[in-house]
């Protein structure tokens, strides 16, 4: 159960984050999917955090691509899919901007990605959506643990929290109980 894996040029492992969740900004409301993403102030990235953030960017790019696949088979959740995809787009761009500001390269998105779920119907589309968010959460969790910089950690926590919230929502839609997990992103 993995989320999309880049077919052409698989950068390092990773997943992306979603925008605007309650994690990094405690004062934010309970509508994490609609919170705008702000690009953090530029600053240097250590080697570990740079690699981890590049992997997170790849995961975000894959999430954007894979949600189009979800949308084709889960039409009843079109609004939520659009919201999630929009969130990943914002997070993708913010991550690329953060990398560029640090003088690091931002990997280009692949033309297509290989997914572990054979999406044929609504249920498999829901499963793919959960996989997407699980992988994105894992990637941002790695970013948190790869840096000593509070700003980088906060940036990554937002992505991790948003992915955790979306994962819970998809589980609720799929009727999975419990809808939450204790340690999102933890292998």
């Amino acid at each position: 159960m993995t989320s999309p894996t880049p077919t052409p040029t698989p950068p390092s492992s990773g997943s992306g984050a979603a925008p605007g969740s309650a994690g990094a900004s405690p004062s934010s409301s309970l509508s994490p999917l609609s919170t705008p993403v702000s690009t953090p102030p530029p600053g240097p990235l250590g080697p570990d955090s740079q690699t981890a953030m590049q992997a997170a960017l790849v995961a975000e790019q894959a999430a954007v691509w894979a949600y189009a696949l979800v949308a084709a088979h889960a039409r009843d959740q079109s609004a939520m899919i659009a919201d999630a995809r929009s969130g990943h787009l914002l997070r993708r761009d913010a991550t690329a901007a953060r990398l560029t500001a640090a003088g690091a390269s931002a990997p280009e998105p692949a033309a297509a990605y290989q997914v572990a779920v054979d999406v044929q119907d609504q249920n498999s589309a829901w499963q793919l959506a959960q996989d997407i968010e699980s992988d994105v959460a894992a990637a941002w969790r790695v970013v948190i643990g790869s840096s000593d910089d509070a700003e980088v950690r906060g940036f990554a926590l937002t992505g991790l929290s948003e992915a955790a919230v979306r994962l819970a929502m998809w589980k609720q839609i799929a009727g999975i109980n419990p809808p939450t997990i204790a340690f999102p992103g933890q292998p």
């Binding site: 994690g23 991790l160 997990i181 992103g185």
Partner: peptide
């Protein structure tokens, strides 16, 4: 971070 994300969910 994982716990905070879990609490967000």
């Amino acid at each position: 971070g994982s716990i905070a994300a879990s609490l967000a969910s």
